[in-house]
Design a protein around this nucleic acid. Structure first.
Lengths: 320, 320
DNA sequence: AAGGTTCTTGCAACCGGTTGCCATCACCCG
DNA sequence: CGGGTGATGGCAACCGGTTGCAAGAACCTT
């Protein structure tokens, strides 16, 4: 059994409160006593039980981070940035994956309640109403979702979509397919909103889709059939799946169809053709989200980060 | 403030112990009372505080999962399998990333102690001695490492390496480069061991390397210069980086050099050329690790899972 | 030397639950 | 009608810490 505070107290003949103070308020205990306690603690391999401590102090020094799909290469940089930032503030980050299932998402949030000091909710699939309700039990920072009065880190998807559409129309594309993501995705809505407002385009919507290669593969045939010469995909994974699907039908990218993705994930950079994409500031977002959560006071501060279009090889001039 | 058990007890005029039993031993409380309690609890939005409960019961119904690098596509399938398996047993999984740093790994394990019922340690970088010491504080299952008396899930790397080497030598390759991974990696040692024991090969070792694209890119020039016609890479990420690096030097794969990876991650399947690789049973490993951890009794059971060679496009006949 | 400070440490309540033990009570049986 | 039985729920100790309060000791003042 692991040593408890009592064992240490007994071992050096002081009261448990003295041991407790040795760790959480060292200046309140006599240097001589302190070193005796430390020696005994070290000897027994004592580590304060964080769960017990949290019970009285109300602080765990843990943060929760919830993502829809840990297999999506978009998240790891964000997660790592959040972890690094948290570590600098003596916090640890626990990550959990919802498998794109809102019910799992809710359950995970409930599980995190009281075990972490706050939750980073990335690209949630829950409804705003539900998130607001859950926010009564544990502080949130939401990433990629705007909810009134709740601290959020947003990526400027609208701006990115605008850049992508301008790029495509500059290449002579008029009929453009919009391959959206899952239901409940704020990003998806933003993209569609911008596209709909851009004049001079002939848009075809496809959705909802899984935000994965499978999703892209699944719509490839429809996209090919609709006569669009360019595609704006929900994210890079979808774009890659789409390109794969088009290749299977002997449709060349970018020769016959241009494809733009979102996120700028690593596989997109390694793919042939290298993917043209809207880069999301995932690292900055992870860092910022942790800051917002910790400095808190947390009054609904909203941070919006800019995106950038990265032109590579999957887009080209429209065919006549 | 979130409602506590006392609030519920007061709200329906019973003792806290009755409320407690309503949730953790319903058959011990009168149906009429029970429904009164449930109604009050529902009304107040009461949820048992899991940290407090853990304090008395000693069980959290959480598992910790530690990986060296969450950005490595090898891990997500394992993580997801573990989560799914755990969920089926009413457990939740918290994931943490060590950034390949043994010190962070140790700290994370310490943090997990008492906050989870057990830890899945995947591809650890800590020394065996240290892992054994830490195992006194929290139950472990180790993945990809053999430690005496400790439950482990191993993937048969030796067998996979053997298959890969046979494949290469069957294609006429004799001088083969071995690009290893980081220090402290059991997998790396296994690979080298098998290679060294295989007769008739002319081996060149390169290592240690980061287990990422960057690692592969970094050794590309050395590999090209060493005169090998084939490479066995520590993992797919390294293999992909290597191919990228070779491409930059106008060295074709598989025309001039054949490359075999390990893991069978998604980007390897999308890459051109599609990667020949040794598939690791990540999903089975995740599931199995959770089973071992939970069914426990945990006496050092060791499970070894088979690997398989998947021949795709990155290997070909040796050049004369 | 009396009275006031400042340190140091023990005491005990508390955080939010769980659980063994016991008292009560209704019900059943002979 | 007395005693046995099982169901029900309160009491209080406990899990492993934290912290406000107060007592005692040491030190300082005048």
């Amino acid at each position: 059994m692991a040593a408890t505070i009592k064992d240490v107290a007994r071992a050096c003949g002081v009261h448990v409160s003295t041991v407790s103070r040795t760790f959480s308020a060292p200046h309140l205990v006599n240097p001589a006593t302190r070193s005796r306690v430390l020696a005994a603690a070290d000897d027994l391999g004592y580590r304060p039980n964080r769960a017990a401590r949290a019970l009285t102090t109300g602080r765990t020094f843990n943060l929760g981070l919830i993502v829809a799909d840990i297999a999506n290469p978009f998240f790891p940089p964000l997660i790592k940035a959040a972890q690094a930032q948290a570590r600098g503030r003596d916090y640890h980050v626990f990550v959990a994956d919802t498998d794109e299932d809102p019910r799992v998402e809710e359950e995970l949030i409930r599980t995190f309640t009281k075990q972490v000091d706050g939750v980073l909710l990335c690209s949630p699939r829950l409804s705003n109403r539900m998130i607001e309700r859950l926010a009564e039990d544990v502080p949130f920072v939401v990433v990629n979702r705007r909810i009134k009065g709740m601290p959020a880190v947003l990526m400027n998807v609208a701006q990115g979509a605008k850049l992508a559409l301008e790029h495509l129309s500059g290449l002579g594309h008029r009929r453009i397919a919009l391959v959206s993501g899952p239901i409940g995705s704020w990003t998806s809505n933003e993209m569609q909103g911008v596209a709909a407002e851009t004049p001079g385009l002939d848009l075809v919507f496809f959705g909802p889709n899984q935000p994965t290669e499978a999703g892209g593969l699944g719509v490839a045939a429809d996209v090919a059939a609709c006569g669009a010469t360019a595609v704006l995909a929900y994210n890079d994974l979808v774009a890659l799946g789409l390109i794969e699907g088009l290749a299977a039908m002997e449709i060349g990218v970018p020769d016959q169809i241009s494809v733009v993705g979102f996120d700028d994930i690593l596989p997109g950079r390694l793919n042939r053709p290298k993917l043209t994409t809207v880069a999301m500031p995932a690292v900055a977002a992870g860092r910022m989200a942790v800051d917002l959560l910790l400095q808190s006071g947390g009054e609904g501060a909203t941070v919006t980060l800019d995106t950038a279009l990265i032109v590579r090889e999957s887009t080209g001039r429209a065919q006549k």
